[in-house]
């Protein structure tokens, strides 16, 4: 685009971002502060993810952007267009054809490969913020791996509800060392992070933090031995493709309690319908 560098950010800023990313990959799950730039999209709408994508994007890349699992949600469209306009890269809705996938709130159903990078948009990178608002204190807790308080939170839930009642942004332990917020993906997606073949990068623009999970790294959801982590989904079948295992959206069809359930991952759903006899 005239008057702007490839992928919007200037090369110096990209180098700063890449240095941050290298550091993040070297210490899996550890939040690295970085000089987040003002972006032409609002904070909370994916500025962190966009900066990370801009830093790793090359001319030969193919980009896929999803929000809520769908390529066609307005924010996904807006971000995909942003890169089509500022970088002129190829874009796709096919998970398998993408080299970089930027996502908000989902991990695709299709298993990712070593040749892919998934970039998560993160609103709140600090998994401990509800227990301890002071960043000075949470930094110390991470340094000392002092995570007893997080387990106390889970204990309280089991004591009260008979089960762990966190549905999304379910805290995980990365590489047995750092407690990490997986971003607000449903807990259903957590197991996909464990030993994922693709590189996982996380960008939080407003909070100015980047973190990463390198390929094949252990990502374990916190739980108790006698109350193990459960990846739950609506107990229904996709009304469009008939999938019984994918994560489902509930769509209201009328004002008399009518409901239908369909795949949240639009590419997954479309592919299944195409290949169906």
């Amino acid at each position: 685009m005239k008057g702007y560098n490839f992928a919007y950010l200037d090369e110096q800023t990209k180098r700063m971002l890449r240095r941050t990313l290298l550091k993040a990959v070297a210490i899996p799950g550890h939040q690295i502060p970085f000089g987040a730039r003002e972006m032409p999209l609002p904070y909370g709408w994916g500025t962190g993810g966009i900066q990370v994508t801009a830093a790793v994007l090359g001319r030969a890349d193919t980009l896929k952007v999803i929000d809520q699992g769908a390529d066609d949600t307005t924010n996904a469209v807006s971000i995909r267009r942003f890169f089509a306009r500022t970088a002129g890269v190829a874009t796709t809705t096919r998970t398998a054809s993408a080299t970089i996938i930027q996502t908000r709130h989902r991990i695709p159903e299709t298993t990712l490969t070593e040749a892919q990078i998934i970039v998560y948009q993160v609103p709140q990178p600090e998994p401990l913020y509800q227990l301890e608002p002071s960043r000075t204190e949470t930094r110390r807790m991470h340094a000392l791996a002092d995570y007893g308080a997080m387990h106390v939170r889970l204990y309280e839930q089991v004591a009260r509800y008979g089960q762990i009642a966190i549905s999304y942004d379910y805290p995980v332990m990365v590489n047995g060392r750092h407690l990490m917020a997986p971003s607000p993906i449903p807990a259903f997606d957590n197991p996909k992070m464990h030993r994922m073949r693709a590189l996982q990068l996380f960008g939080a623009g407003r909070e100015k933090r980047i973190y990463a999970v390198p390929p094949y790294t252990a990502v374990v959801s916190l739980d108790f031995e006698d109350h193990p982590f459960r990846a739950s989904r609506a107990a229904h079948v996709c009304a469009l493709c008939g999938d019984r295992a994918s994560y489902l959206d509930e769509v209201v069809t009328d004002d008399r309690g009518g409901r239908m359930f369909i795949c949240s991952d639009t590419d997954h759903c479309a592919s299944r319908r195409e290949s169906a006899p």
Binding site: P42, Y43, G44, W45, T47, P123, P186, R206, Y247, E250
Partner: peptide, 16 residues
């Protein structure tokens, strides 16, 4: 940005 981002779809989290 962060207040108004609540306008963005959150239906996956809401579903969970």
């Amino acid at each position: 940005g962060f207040v108004e981002h609540l306008k963005l779809p959150h239906y996956v989290d809401f579903q969970s």
